[in-house]
Amino acid sequence: MISPDLGGTPPARLPREAFVALAVLAALWETLARLSPALGIPAFAVPSLVRIGEALTKITPLDVAVTLARVLGALAASFALGVAGAVVMYLSQTADRYAKPIVRLLMAVPVVSWILFAILWFRWVEFRIGFVLVVVCAPVFLIDILDAMKGVSRELREMVRSFRPTRVQFFVKLMLPATLPAILTSWKINLSLAIRVVTIAELVGAVTGIGHQLAVAQELFSVANVFAWTLVLVVLLFALEAAVNWLEHRLLRWRT
């Protein structure tokens, strides 16, 4: 229902400066790799770009898919829990007062502690990883969405109330679109968080996934493999962020 002339600007693309900066970084790295024996650095510690490239060709897509599935599954569950918690806390000041200290406490616990708890409490590896991801990401979703809901202007809320909405209409027709920018920002934050957390969780417990492959590479002293898997993680994060950015561009064109 939008006329063509009202479309927004396209999503930001990687600027030329970024390509130049990355090319310079790669050139510096390659120079360091070639000079490392002369500098007294072990050759395996600074692998050349060719060796990293060879390691990249050995990346197993299954491990990437498993890590991706863990991240997306856990984020979906975290989002559902975060939304449910935020709605309850928005509707009930009592729930807000009692739950908020607990949520803050959960957010203050270090990720490593959650991983240790998960290993001690649960036997099933997938559940351990899912538990750690959800307990880290759900509170972030909850707080972000709750803050956004509380930030919806009083006039907008009164306007909607003046038309006598049902409770479902109030949330679906007002709160959802009003908090959508905050929801998408929260997804971006949590994607980055989840990618980092899943790697650590997979390092210590899993037999598949990128974190597991990093652990294997470390045991084999294969810095090239560590680089290759790290690059995959970074690209995976960028791809997921690009997907959210695309969604943001589609859904929030009214802001442009």
């Binding site: 006039e155 009164e158 306007m159 003046s162 007002l174 009003a178």
Partner: peptide, 16 residues
């Protein structure tokens, strides 16, 4: 029976 016209318009910015 009543409709309200608000001082700061109270329009939904995401809607046409």
């Amino acid at each position: 029976e009543c409709s309200v016209v608000f001082q700061d318009f109270a329009l939904m910015p995401w809607a046409t």
